[in-house]
Amino acid sequence: MALLIHSVFRVLSWLPLPVLHVMGWLLGWLSFALSARYRRRLFAHAAQAGYPRRVALASVGESGKLVTELPRLWLGRPVRIEWAGAELIEATQTPGSGVLFLTPHLGCFEITAQAYARRFGAARPMTVLFRPARKPWLRELVANARSRPGLQAAPTTLSGVKQLMQALKAGEAVGLLPDQVPPAGLGVWAPFFGRDAYTMTLSARLVRAADVQILLSWGERLSWGRGYRVHVRSFDAVNGGPLSAQPDEAARQINLAMEALVRECPAQYLWSYDRYKTPNRSAHSLR
């Protein structure tokens, strides 16, 4: 099975990005048509944030592109990348000071780390936290595909968190998706678009453990497969101040910052993600 999947990914990685995005658009609408649960969650979450159905519907094709672009991003030729705010990264090149990037489920979040590694990874490597695939045959493919020069992947385990802390203490960069629901006991309930969502406290723990600067980033998927534009924002500027040392307040601040990024392009947010679920303990939890 692993060999078959890898072969399929390899073949798809040769396709032009516009073709993959057309395939993804069709996949997204097929999922929408076949799953009533998907449709209910999509509309409910967009409405919770104050957006009409047309915004939710615009995100359907984008969510499919999120899947079909992966073979190209993981195994294919480099894609075209534009930057908006790269100077904020350049301004953090302080010896001994790490950088924490917070990225929501917005646009192509896979490209943000790759773009950073391509442009800045030689001088300051990045480590990203990822949840290992449940299927063993897929786990190795995902882990290997995400690791490249200037970029390492750390699993959502205790050893993975230690890897992130070591990277920040060494003055390197770390990337997180803070709107990902953490395992039970590793988060707090904080408002997200007006409704309490279980929110990870890992970001605040990392900031307390090392001298860290926080930046926000997200990868805009450009139309017609033209590539991506990576947006970088200052957390302090968006939030109006530094991250609090109190877990509850820090979670509230981070959710507000994620909301601000989503509002930049709500049609590319993953509204179908089960953001408001009650977490369960997992075999891969950060224990």
Rank of each mutant, 00 (worst) to 15 (best):
S272R: 02
Q152V: 03
L75N: 11
A173P: 05
L73G: 03
I214S: 04
L70N: 10
Q48F: 04
Y269E: 13
R118M: 10
L216H: 09
R10L: 12
F9Q: 09
G85S: 10
M200D: 08
G194Y: 13
L206P: 02
V8L: 15
P191W: 04
L270Y: 15
R77N: 08
P125L: 03
V142W: 11
R134P: 00
V262S: 01
V161D: 03
F43R: 12
F120G: 05
L30G: 13
L102P: 02
F192C: 02
F32R: 03
M200Y: 07
H231M: 07
T103C: 14
V174D: 10
R229H: 03
L70P: 01
M258E: 04
F235N: 01
R10K: 14
R124C: 02
Y228F: 15
T127V: 12
A204M: 05
S35M: 09
P125G: 05
D248N: 02
R124F: 03
V238D: 02
L256W: 09
R146S: 12
R205W: 09
L66T: 11
A197F: 03
I5G: 05
H45I: 00
H284I: 02
A44H: 14
L215K: 05
L26G: 06
A251R: 01
C265D: 15
M200I: 13
M23F: 12
R53W: 12
A245D: 14
R77E: 14
A143L: 07
W137C: 02
V19R: 07
L17H: 08
V55G: 01
K162W: 14
W29L: 05
A245G: 04
H231E: 11
R281V: 06
K162S: 13
T68Y: 05
N144I: 00
V60N: 06
Y273L: 10
L138P: 01
K277S: 07
L176Q: 06
L222W: 13
V79R: 04
I81W: 09
L206M: 12
R221Q: 13
G121K: 12
R205D: 07
G187L: 03
E82P: 01
Q166H: 06
G225S: 08
F130W: 15
R39T: 06
M200K: 01
L168V: 06
T278A: 10
A2F: 06
L243V: 07
L73E: 10
A197S: 09
M200C: 00
R41L: 11
L168A: 06
L42S: 04
W74L: 08
E140L: 09
I214M: 08
P183E: 14
G185I: 08
